[in-house]
Nucleic acid binder design. Structure first.
Lengths: 211, 211, 211, 211
DNA sequence: CATGAATGAGAGTTCATTCAT
DNA sequence: GATGAATGAACTCTCATTCAT
């Protein structure tokens, strides 16, 4: 981490073959980090998993950290794409349910990668910025949703939207990690239901849910 | 070679001087891991921080992992001790506030250590067991509290106490980490208030809180 | 930590350059152990002797023990190949002389390596098995020869062939070590003559020798 | 081995208690080297086995090598004492039998120690001198015996007494090692008988043996 | 004298990165 | 561009020896 760069910055691959190898390394890197954790994430392991030679690594990536950043970027893009709740869904509670379902179901794997990588962020500014950016995306979006509900008189107006978003987002993230990483045997859909009810109750959501 | 003997299991120090050095190493180890993260946690760094020579490390600890486990154990004991809410406090909401205040205030530093160590648990069974045990302490205690409130008719009886405890505990833990590790500038007491309100609302706490 | 992966079992070198380095390390290792003994046999010494960098050692060998085993294997192969007495030599006494000559002359250097390594065998099962296998080769072959002479009425039929082979083999081995290791200034060919006469007399060899 | 001495040469113990500790360390050292081999022979292991504190080691011995030399000296004295065949035994063959029996039975354990120590002698002049002295004792005595038999017309006069002594002594030593160290399950008395017959036949012993 | 903590040079091993082919 | 051998600094751990108590 944070060592002086001495490598020629590898250019983006120009040939189709190059593109394939480049992508294969990102995919393989992600698999390695998921299966063998941080300590198993070595250029050698990655290149072996990708079926290319050791030296090829540095054809495409400046350093191990460089690959790591790209893996995180890819995981983040995937998470964010997968977690967009369509605007057509209007009922607030249904939106909460859908957001939680997507977070847990579609992004669990990516979330696991992010958590494994978190401590690496301690030393790498770029990585830390990336992770903060991802968190900000979720927090900002949630806060915005809460603010809208407050304006519409559907949620407790005393809550600070941002603090609330951080707390409830943390709740969902933590549960996602426990499900995906520590393998406490929890039924996902049941958790979605629970999380949604807790979330809704926490912000004092009023309306359709009233059942 | 050198397989003839395993590491001579270091006995507990018998002299006062030994005890001092032993404790100094645990303290130093904890500081190192807090300040420089997992990657900076080396026997060399720890002994330097403790002001003793390299070899002394192995006078007291079987291995780097051994010290790590002891640091985690100490952090866990500290957290658990600090977070016990006195029985004299009877009002349910006040208990929630107090529990959150203690978790955030008194245990933040320890929680940071635990989070830094989490990925190491990926490889070390003892460590993983320790972390699970700590989590179980909090989850079990929270679940019990929720169950009591349900029985007393003060909380939503439809909630699964354990799932709820995991989710809300995750919420508090995550916030504690964000405050202590990622240094989002959040006012602790304000967070305590918020978390408590969210927690109470989430479980549908009825009664005295109404103020 | 770092238990995630065991040493990546180094594959056999694929390029000519790799093969050269690999072989150079085995040769250098043998020289080091001959010249500086067990205590001087370090990866650093070996790589320096081979003119390569420290890390290269582990490109080709899993560990120091791994190289040691390969050195022993090579020495054993060499000894055994060099000590095969051609079947065309039929006279029993001449066969004894030839066997002794070959053992002393052709195998002394290898025998020295084996003796230096012997105490390492105390700890390494593979190594101990290898040494026993080598001893068994010599003992078995000698015992077989003695048995044949007994059947032909040329040797004392009361002797247990195996015990005799162990004892007389020990005699030759010990003399080989003294000549090669402890450098008692003994004339090799004179020793061959003596050993052969002692051996022949010991088993009561009758016939052509009587001259 | 062979490092510069920086220690105050420990004086011979003056008190009875000192003598006891000193001797206990030699005994313990010998046990350790027999049981755990060269690699297990550490001051720590020795002091533990002797039931004294670590530091006490250097009260009595200048260094590890110093103790080693004293162990070897003690083992050698023991061997030599135990292997003296009484002059009252006059029959040459009976003397051979008795010498072999004593060597195998009474000195096997000591011989094992010497063999384990042999490779240490590679670097330590004092030790090498000691071992050579021991060998010389046996070789010299055997050679003398052979010479006497030759003079008396009882043994093959063509044999060089010294070469013969080295060879036959090697035979017995090697068998002793195999019995004691490598644990080939051999019956000791049977080996004594065999070795004696081989020895007698090898030197062409004539006379009383004729049975 | 005895004790056991302290020392630090050195061993074996790993691995991110470079480089010759 | 791909290959895989080469590099060496850094890491964890050991142990003979010293020294304060």
């Amino acid at each position: 981490m944070g060592r002086a760069r001495t490598n020629p910055a590898p250019a983006a691959p120009t040939t189709a073959r190059g593109r394939r190898t480049h992508d294969a390394l990102i995919v393989a890197g992600r698999e390695v980090i998921e299966e063998h954790g941080w300590a198993g994430f070595t250029p050698e392991a990655v290149t072996q998993a990708a079926g290319v030679s050791y030296g090829t690594f540095y054809t495409y990536f400046e350093s191990k950290d460089d690959l790591l950043r790209k893996i995180v970027q890819a995981a983040a893009d995937e998470m964010i794409t997968a977690s967009l709740v369509p605007d057509t869904l209007e009922d607030p509670y249904a939106r909460i349910v859908e957001a939680n379902r997507r977070y847990l179901a579609a992004t669990g794997r990516a979330a696991k990668v992010l958590r494994m990588v978190e401590h690496g962020a301690y030393l790498d500014d770029t990585l830390r910025a990336l992770l903060l950016e991802i968190r900000e995306f979720y927090v900002g979006r949630s806060a915005e949703g809460i603010r809208r509900l407050q304006t519409a008189g559907l949620a407790d107006p005393d809550l600070d939207p941002r603090l609330t978003a951080i707390a409830l987002g943390g709740m969902v993230e933590q549960v996602a990690v426990i499900i995906n990483e520590l393998r406490e045997p929890l039924d996902a859909e049941k958790m979605v239901d629970h999380l949604s009810r807790l979330w809704a109750a926490a912000i004092g959501l009023r309306g359709p849910r009233s059942s």
